[in-house]
Simulated assay, not measured.
Amino acid sequence: MTHDPTGRLLLTPVDTEAPARVRRLRGLGIGQCPEPAFDAFADRLAELTGAPYSMVNFIDENRQFFAGLHAPERPARPADRYMARDHGYCPHVVVRRKALVLEDVRDYPRFAGNPVVEEIGIRSYLGAPLIDRTGMVLGTVCVVDVEPRRWGRAGLDTIKRMAAELVEQIHRREEGGI
């Protein structure tokens, strides 16, 4: 985490890999439009975890894009699947390169002030990075809830397993197998 010159804490981590990630995502042909396969993956992830919201999220220098989304109502327009990079917790997962479990975001000062807490009412988060065979973090898979959740070890294992499964699907797609 960094501070700006005025001494204010910046909650979103610096992401030096973003330009390379964007090139890799474009090369794979993903991360710029919703995809039924990613929506189906998000649906399955929500079912496995019992979460009301689930995403397959790809992140560039400025914003996040939910190429796969499970929500009570899916947005009708692709533009509604974008979120600023400083909103939410997936940018932290990408920079950390490891899973993040927040059972109640308000218990963590670093995360409690995130705009999604007040604007959307997010109270819990569980996410894991999508790290491909080149070592690039492409994005994340995550689930969120508007209530505190005890994700526990089972939740962490599930999100990590599902991230690995999706990366394998992306690799098969790259090889022409899907």
Rank of each mutant, 00 (worst) to 15 (best):
R63D: 11
P13Q: 07
A40Q: 13
I30G: 05
E73T: 12
G31A: 15
T134E: 15
R23E: 15
N57T: 15
S124G: 14
R23S: 13
G29T: 11
G7H: 03
A79L: 14
D107G: 04
A128S: 15
R110N: 08
E174L: 12
A67G: 03
A20E: 09
T2S: 12
R172F: 15
A99H: 11
R8P: 03
R153A: 10
G27E: 14
C33Y: 05
R149L: 09
L10C: 08
G27Q: 09
S124I: 08
T2A: 06
V116E: 01
M55L: 15
R97N: 09
A46V: 14
E47C: 08
E175W: 15
L100A: 07
R110T: 14
D107Q: 15
R106E: 10
P129V: 06
T6K: 05
G152E: 01
I122Q: 01
R123Y: 06
E35H: 07
P75G: 04
P19M: 06
L100P: 00
P72E: 06
V141E: 01
V14H: 01
V143E: 07
D43M: 13
E118H: 07
L126F: 13
H70Q: 05
G121Q: 04
V56Y: 03
E61N: 05
V117I: 14
R63G: 05
V101E: 04
P34L: 04
R150T: 07
E175H: 15
R85G: 05
